[in-house]
Amino acid sequence: MDTRPRTSPRESYRDVVARLAAAQKSGRGAPAYSRYVNRRLGRHLAAAAYLTGRTPTQVTAVSAVATGSGIAVLALGPNAWWTGVVVTALLVLGYALDAADGQLARLQGGGTLAGEWLDHVVDSVKISALHLAVLVHLHHVAGPEGALAQAWLLAPLLFTVVAAVSFFAQILNEQLRRAASGSGTSRSSASPLVSLLKAPTDFGVLCGVLLLLGAVQVFAVAYSLLALASAGYLALALGRWYREMRSYDAERAVR
């Protein structure tokens, strides 16, 4: 009789993906691409990383390399159709890996403070460096003999400020909500319509615009409109977020 201990069968890729889907963090309030596309891509990448023994920190590092490579190509590459394709592919991969590291951490029993810190630092570098790379790219095209007016260079400057303020405010919101109510989630609706209305803030939409790099004047118009829409959304959101914090103050005052 065989008395050797039996080992449980190794999970299949499909099993891990299904387990991740069941334990998926709520997409409440996330823009449409992030909610419906990027998290699914991240789920599959997290499953592959789990089965190959990778750590969340390693996934974060690969995400940073992919995103950084895309930003470098954007800043230094020629104004050609293939530049937009390469930049978009690298940024989409980096963004999917950014979703995968947190999902992998949950698979392995929970994340760490160091991992969360690293994830946010990488994100903070990305959100500013990406738009500054657009500025560098457009500056090359908008030289004295270029096909682009210098005024278009204001768009990436605006986008840099909007992206930095948005990221800081969202991180601060999570911390203050957690301190006030024990939850870092927003009170806003989680309907698909709300996700679609957040399109100006959606990284997937920005990646789609970057595909237009080869047609530089079309890109400049689309990118500038997206920058203005993002600024408008931020202006409205700041007012709503401030009123939300005031409501927490009012709740604390009556306790």
Rank of each mutant, 00 (worst) to 15 (best):
T112Q: 08
V205L: 15
L148Y: 00
L206R: 15
P156W: 02
L76V: 07
V134S: 14
A164Q: 09
A99H: 14
L234E: 06
R43E: 12
S12W: 08
V161L: 14
G146P: 03
T88F: 06
G102E: 02
P5G: 00
I171T: 12
G68N: 05
G208R: 05
G182S: 06
A142E: 03
T88D: 09
L211P: 09
A169Y: 10
H120A: 10
V141N: 02
A49C: 07
S195N: 04
A89H: 08
A99L: 11
L45D: 00
V165Q: 01
S26Y: 04
L132T: 04
A190L: 09
S63R: 00
G102A: 04
A49L: 01
Y13P: 08
L138Q: 10
H131A: 07
L226F: 09
L228T: 05
P9G: 11
R28C: 11
H139E: 03
P144M: 11
S224P: 03
T55L: 07
R177K: 06
A30L: 14
L76Y: 11
A80W: 02
S189A: 12
A169P: 00
P31E: 01
R177L: 13
V125A: 08
E145Q: 13
T88H: 03
A66V: 05
Q175C: 03
P5H: 00
R177N: 15
A66N: 08
K126W: 13
V125N: 01
A99M: 06
L41W: 09
A147G: 12
R10P: 04
V87G: 11
R40L: 10
N79M: 09
L93E: 03
A49F: 01
L211T: 08
D2A: 13
L172T: 13
N173I: 00
N173L: 13
V165D: 02
A100H: 01
A23W: 01
V134L: 14
E145A: 13
G109W: 07
G68C: 09
G232K: 05
L234Y: 04
Y233K: 07
E116L: 10
P144I: 04
A22M: 03
D98Y: 15
W117S: 08
D202H: 11
T60N: 09
A142H: 02
L154F: 15
G115Q: 12
L107K: 08
N173K: 06
H139T: 14
T185D: 10
G182Q: 04
G184C: 11
R246Q: 15
E116Q: 14
Q58C: 05
E11T: 02
